[in-house]
Protein backbone atom coordinates (compact mmCIF):
# COMPACT_ATOMS: atom_id res chain seq x y z
CA UNK A 1 0.00 0.00 0.00
CA UNK A 2 1.33 3.39 -0.94
CA UNK A 3 0.20 6.77 0.20
CA UNK A 4 1.08 10.20 -1.09
CA UNK A 5 1.15 13.61 0.40
CA UNK A 6 1.80 16.70 -1.65
CA UNK A 7 2.14 20.38 -0.84
CA UNK A 8 3.43 23.54 -2.48
CA UNK A 9 5.04 26.52 -0.90
CA UNK A 10 6.86 29.67 -1.93
CA UNK A 11 9.90 30.92 -0.07
CA UNK A 12 10.21 34.65 -0.18
CA UNK A 13 13.93 34.33 -0.85
CA UNK A 14 16.03 34.04 -3.97
CA UNK A 15 16.83 30.63 -5.45
CA UNK A 16 20.59 30.79 -4.62
CA UNK A 17 19.76 31.63 -0.99
CA UNK A 18 17.29 28.73 -0.73
CA UNK A 19 19.80 26.19 -2.08
CA UNK A 20 22.46 27.43 0.31
CA UNK A 21 20.00 27.24 3.19
CA UNK A 22 19.19 23.68 2.15
CA UNK A 23 22.82 22.66 2.66
CA UNK A 24 23.01 24.67 5.87
CA UNK A 25 19.66 23.75 7.37
CA UNK A 26 21.00 21.51 10.14
CA UNK A 27 21.28 22.34 12.93
CA UNK A 28 18.43 24.81 13.41
CA UNK A 29 16.10 25.37 16.38
CA UNK A 30 13.39 23.22 14.76
CA UNK A 31 15.62 20.24 14.10
CA UNK A 32 17.13 19.34 17.43
CA UNK A 33 16.56 15.68 16.65
CA UNK A 34 19.16 15.77 13.86
CA UNK A 35 22.36 14.50 15.46
CA UNK A 36 24.78 14.59 12.55
CA UNK A 37 25.06 15.32 8.84
CA UNK A 38 27.78 14.05 6.55
CA UNK A 39 28.45 14.51 2.87
CA UNK A 40 29.37 11.15 1.42
CA UNK A 41 29.67 12.08 -2.22
CA UNK A 42 29.70 15.21 -4.29
CA UNK A 43 30.36 15.80 -7.97
CA UNK A 44 29.83 18.31 -10.72
CA UNK A 45 28.63 17.14 -14.08
CA UNK A 46 31.04 18.73 -16.50
CA UNK A 47 28.61 18.79 -19.40
CA UNK A 48 25.62 20.28 -17.60
CA UNK A 49 27.24 22.02 -14.63
CA UNK A 50 24.82 20.22 -12.30
CA UNK A 51 25.97 19.62 -8.76
CA UNK A 52 25.15 16.22 -7.25
CA UNK A 53 25.37 15.69 -3.50
CA UNK A 54 24.65 12.71 -1.29
CA UNK A 55 24.42 13.21 2.44
CA UNK A 56 23.55 11.03 5.37
CA UNK A 57 21.79 12.42 8.42
CA UNK A 58 21.50 10.68 11.75
CA UNK A 59 18.35 11.45 13.67
CA UNK A 60 17.11 10.46 17.05
CA UNK A 61 13.59 9.33 16.52
CA UNK A 62 10.70 8.06 18.48
CA UNK A 63 7.96 5.92 17.13
CA UNK A 64 4.61 7.35 18.17
CA UNK A 65 3.06 5.29 21.00
CA UNK A 66 0.03 4.67 18.80
CA UNK A 67 2.24 2.94 16.24
CA UNK A 68 4.13 0.98 18.88
CA UNK A 69 0.88 -0.45 20.19
CA UNK A 70 -0.01 -1.77 16.78
CA UNK A 71 3.23 -3.55 16.08
CA UNK A 72 4.01 -7.12 17.01
CA UNK A 73 7.17 -7.55 19.09
CA UNK A 74 8.87 -9.50 16.34
CA UNK A 75 9.22 -6.45 14.12
CA UNK A 76 10.37 -4.16 16.92
CA UNK A 77 13.86 -5.61 17.15
CA UNK A 78 15.81 -2.39 17.25
CA UNK A 79 13.38 -0.24 19.17
CA UNK A 80 13.68 -0.03 22.90
CA UNK A 81 11.14 2.12 24.68
CA UNK A 82 10.17 3.50 21.30
CA UNK A 83 13.47 5.34 21.02
CA UNK A 84 15.99 4.71 18.37
CA UNK A 85 18.35 6.37 15.98
CA UNK A 86 17.71 6.32 12.31
CA UNK A 87 19.60 7.22 9.21
CA UNK A 88 18.30 9.34 6.39
CA UNK A 89 19.88 9.33 2.97
CA UNK A 90 19.50 12.60 1.11
CA UNK A 91 20.42 13.22 -2.50
CA UNK A 92 20.21 16.53 -4.28
CA UNK A 93 20.86 17.84 -7.77
CA UNK A 94 21.18 21.53 -8.46
CA UNK A 95 21.14 23.17 -11.86
CA UNK A 96 22.10 26.74 -11.26
CA UNK A 97 21.76 27.73 -14.93
CA UNK A 98 18.22 26.47 -15.27
CA UNK A 99 17.35 27.44 -11.73
CA UNK A 100 16.10 24.23 -10.15
CA UNK A 101 17.03 21.84 -7.36
CA UNK A 102 15.63 18.36 -6.88
CA UNK A 103 16.07 16.50 -3.65
CA UNK A 104 15.10 13.15 -2.28
CA UNK A 105 15.33 11.89 1.31
CA UNK A 106 14.54 8.44 2.56
CA UNK A 107 14.89 6.41 5.69
CA UNK A 108 17.47 3.63 5.69
CA UNK A 109 16.13 1.63 8.59
CA UNK A 110 12.75 0.52 9.83
CA UNK A 111 11.89 0.17 6.17
CA UNK A 112 10.17 -3.09 7.03
CA UNK A 113 7.69 -1.07 9.10
CA UNK A 114 7.45 2.06 7.04
CA UNK A 115 9.36 3.51 4.08
CA UNK A 116 9.15 7.23 3.71
CA UNK A 117 10.48 9.02 0.65
CA UNK A 118 10.31 12.77 0.54
CA UNK A 119 10.98 14.49 -2.79
CA UNK A 120 11.25 18.19 -3.29
CA UNK A 121 11.45 20.28 -6.45
CA UNK A 122 12.66 23.82 -5.97
CA UNK A 123 12.23 26.25 -8.81
CA UNK A 124 13.60 29.73 -9.31
CA UNK A 125 10.82 32.27 -9.81
CA UNK A 126 11.48 35.69 -11.14
CA UNK A 127 8.13 37.25 -11.70
CA UNK A 128 8.25 40.85 -12.82
CA UNK A 129 4.52 41.23 -13.45
CA UNK A 130 3.65 40.73 -9.81
CA UNK A 131 4.30 43.74 -7.66
CA UNK A 132 5.25 42.45 -4.24
CA UNK A 133 3.60 43.18 -0.93
CA UNK A 134 6.66 44.97 0.29
CA UNK A 135 8.44 41.94 1.74
CA UNK A 136 9.72 40.62 -1.60
CA UNK A 137 13.40 40.31 -2.47
CA UNK A 138 14.77 41.82 -5.64
CA UNK A 139 16.10 38.52 -6.88
CA UNK A 140 12.74 36.77 -6.95
CA UNK A 141 11.26 33.95 -4.93
CA UNK A 142 11.59 30.18 -4.87
CA UNK A 143 8.75 27.75 -5.30
CA UNK A 144 8.87 24.26 -3.87
CA UNK A 145 6.65 21.24 -4.37
CA UNK A 146 7.06 18.57 -1.72
CA UNK A 147 5.85 15.03 -2.27
CA UNK A 148 5.97 12.44 0.46
CA UNK A 149 5.34 8.81 -0.26
CA UNK A 150 4.91 6.26 2.46
CA UNK A 151 4.64 2.61 2.22
CA UNK A 152 4.11 0.09 4.95
CA UNK A 153 5.33 -3.33 3.96
CA UNK A 154 4.42 -4.82 7.29
CA UNK A 155 1.24 -6.34 5.98
CA UNK A 156 3.04 -8.16 3.18
CA UNK A 157 5.44 -9.69 5.65
CA UNK A 158 2.79 -10.78 8.09
CA UNK A 159 0.63 -12.19 5.35
CA UNK A 160 3.53 -14.18 3.96
CA UNK A 161 4.17 -15.60 7.40
CA UNK A 162 0.53 -16.47 7.93
CA UNK A 163 0.40 -18.24 4.59
CA UNK A 164 3.41 -20.38 5.42
CA UNK A 165 2.12 -21.47 8.82
CA UNK A 166 -1.46 -22.24 7.96
CA UNK A 167 -2.97 -25.69 8.32
CA UNK A 168 -5.16 -27.17 5.60
CA UNK A 169 -8.67 -27.03 7.04
CA UNK A 170 -8.70 -23.58 8.48
CA UNK A 171 -6.57 -22.06 5.80
CA UNK A 172 -9.12 -19.91 4.13
CA UNK A 173 -10.68 -18.54 7.25
CA UNK A 174 -7.39 -17.83 8.98
CA UNK A 175 -5.87 -16.33 5.88
CA UNK A 176 -8.81 -14.04 5.50
CA UNK A 177 -8.68 -12.89 9.13
CA UNK A 178 -4.91 -12.42 9.05
CA UNK A 179 -5.05 -10.31 5.95
CA UNK A 180 -7.95 -8.29 7.30
CA UNK A 181 -6.16 -7.39 10.51
CA UNK A 182 -2.78 -6.67 8.94
CA UNK A 183 -4.46 -4.44 6.39
CA UNK A 184 -6.00 -2.61 9.32
CA UNK A 185 -2.62 -2.18 10.98
CA UNK A 186 -1.07 -1.03 7.74
CA UNK A 187 -3.79 1.54 7.20
CA UNK A 188 -3.44 2.82 10.75
CA UNK A 189 0.34 3.13 10.51
CA UNK A 190 0.03 5.04 7.28
CA UNK A 191 -2.66 7.30 8.71
CA UNK A 192 -0.54 8.11 11.76
CA UNK A 193 2.54 8.64 9.59
CA UNK A 194 0.67 10.99 7.35
CA UNK A 195 -0.54 13.09 10.30
CA UNK A 196 3.02 13.23 11.62
CA UNK A 197 4.27 14.21 8.20
CA UNK A 198 2.08 17.29 8.02
CA UNK A 199 3.46 18.36 11.36
CA UNK A 200 7.04 17.59 10.32
CA UNK A 201 6.76 19.43 7.00
CA UNK A 202 5.67 22.52 8.89
CA UNK A 203 8.70 22.27 11.12
CA UNK A 204 11.15 21.80 8.28
CA UNK A 205 9.72 24.87 6.58
CA UNK A 206 10.17 26.86 9.80
CA UNK A 207 13.73 25.59 10.07
CA UNK A 208 14.55 26.65 6.51
CA UNK A 209 13.04 30.07 7.17
CA UNK A 210 15.19 30.60 10.26
CA UNK A 211 18.32 29.77 8.25
CA UNK A 212 17.20 31.96 5.33
CA UNK A 213 16.54 34.92 7.61
CA UNK A 214 20.00 34.53 9.14
CA UNK A 215 21.50 34.40 5.66
CA UNK A 216 19.68 37.56 4.64
CA UNK A 217 20.80 39.43 7.73
CA UNK A 218 24.34 38.24 8.22
CA UNK A 219 25.35 36.06 5.27
CA UNK A 220 27.21 32.81 5.89
CA UNK A 221 28.80 34.18 9.06
CA UNK A 222 25.33 35.01 10.35
CA UNK A 223 24.16 31.43 9.83
CA UNK A 224 27.20 29.90 11.52
CA UNK A 225 26.88 32.29 14.47
CA UNK A 226 23.22 31.36 14.78
CA UNK A 227 24.13 27.64 14.89
CA UNK A 228 26.59 28.26 17.69
CA UNK A 229 24.00 30.16 19.67
CA UNK A 230 21.39 27.42 19.13
CA UNK A 231 23.81 24.86 20.48
CA UNK A 232 24.47 26.92 23.59
CA UNK A 233 20.79 27.52 24.30
CA UNK A 234 19.98 23.89 23.57
CA UNK A 235 22.36 22.91 26.35
CA UNK A 236 20.48 25.24 28.64
CA UNK A 237 16.92 24.25 27.83
CA UNK A 238 16.75 20.68 26.71
CA UNK A 239 17.39 17.56 28.69
CA UNK A 240 18.31 15.34 25.78
Amino acid sequence: MVKFYESSYTYDYSFPAVTLAYFLRYPNPYSTHVLSSDTISRSIDEATGQLHTTRIHRKSSRLPPAVLKLLPKSVLGNVSGGRSESYILETSTIDVKEGWMRTESKNLDWTGILSVVESQEFQRRVDSSEVGDGSGVGEGTTGVVTTVMFRSRLGDRLRARARKGDGEGEEEKKGFLASWSTNGIQRSIEAIASRKTENQLGKSKEGMTVVLERLRRGGLVGVLDGMRKDRESEGMWSKG
Binding site: P16, L20, F23, E46, L51, V96, K97, L220
Partner: peptide, 18 residues
Protein backbone atom coordinates in the same frame (compact mmCIF):
# COMPACT_ATOMS: atom_id res chain seq x y z
CA UNK B 1 35.69 25.30 1.80
CA UNK B 2 32.59 23.99 0.05
CA UNK B 3 30.27 26.72 1.32
CA UNK B 4 32.71 29.42 0.25
CA UNK B 5 33.15 27.88 -3.20
CA UNK B 6 29.43 27.25 -3.55
CA UNK B 7 28.30 30.74 -2.61
CA UNK B 8 31.10 32.72 -4.23
CA UNK B 9 31.68 30.70 -7.38
CA UNK B 10 29.16 28.00 -8.19
CA UNK B 11 26.09 30.15 -7.62
CA UNK B 12 27.61 32.84 -9.82
CA UNK B 13 28.14 30.41 -12.64
CA UNK B 14 31.91 30.34 -12.18
CA UNK B 15 32.33 26.99 -10.49
CA UNK B 16 33.00 24.40 -13.16
CA UNK B 17 35.60 22.74 -10.98
CA UNK B 18 35.31 21.52 -7.41
Amino acid sequence: CFLKWYSEKYLRGKGQKD
